[in-house]
Amino acid sequence: MVVGDRNQRRALMALRLILLTAGVVVMLLPFAYMVSTSFKPNAMVLEIPVKFFPQHPTVANYVTAWTSNRFARYFLNSVVVAIGTTLAALLLSSMMAYAFARFRFPGRSILFGLILIALMVPTMMMLIPQFLLARDLHLLNSLWGLVAFYTGGNLGFNTFLLHSFFQDIPSELEEAMVVDGAGPWTRYWRLILPLARPALATAAIFTFLGAWDEFTWALTIINDPSKYTLPIAIALFQGQHSTSWGLVFAASVIAIAPVLVIFAIFQRQFVAGIAAGAVKA
């Protein structure tokens, strides 16, 4: 009986592994095919039968993307925008979260309620008025326009996330600092922020990725190729008459590589962030 039980358990585990592995194959196949295509010369791209391992692999697509198509520039723009957004959004939202978590003031629940309600409004709904606003503020066609609106768009969720984390920090710690004569700025900067490092890391990662991958706003306000970020550069990188898929995918690999590295390093924070209340998609 015990032996039978163990055999059954083993069979079950084997079934699990088989099913999960099948799922992984489905998950990875598109990536594998993309990478494989990026190493194919253009004439071989839509060959039948399909070849996962190109017969004459070439790095020409990567060279072309990086050199003659200025992807280095787009990469730099994306880095600047994503880092700028992350820093600004983290600072502003942690300050707001601190105010909501630790102070009582008139209008507190109304303001917090506005933030929660705005979280439910689809981002794209604001596109048209945001476009007009950016025009009036002379923020069209500029990386500042990206940073300002990405930051604004991330404030709501980050404030909410950090607010719940800040509340869980025992107030006794702060009271001890108050006794030592520390003002609210000192407490925020010296106590709350260091203690909230895990939550800040989670917020930072999601903000960075959101800004790195953002497409619609950038497509709408950026005209000048020297200000393209990677997503629009890739999307606008299609020939008029036929698409050079190898080149498109070489550029795509360049764009997602940093994301995968960040993901691999900060997996724990990813999972923590999702489990802590899920992320606005």
Partner: peptide, 14 residues
């Protein structure tokens, strides 16, 4: 994409 870019640029004065 050019037509849409032009129209958007008209709207934005760009």
């Amino acid at each position: 994409d050019l037509h849409q870019k032009l129209v958007t640029a008209v709207a934005g004065g760009q």
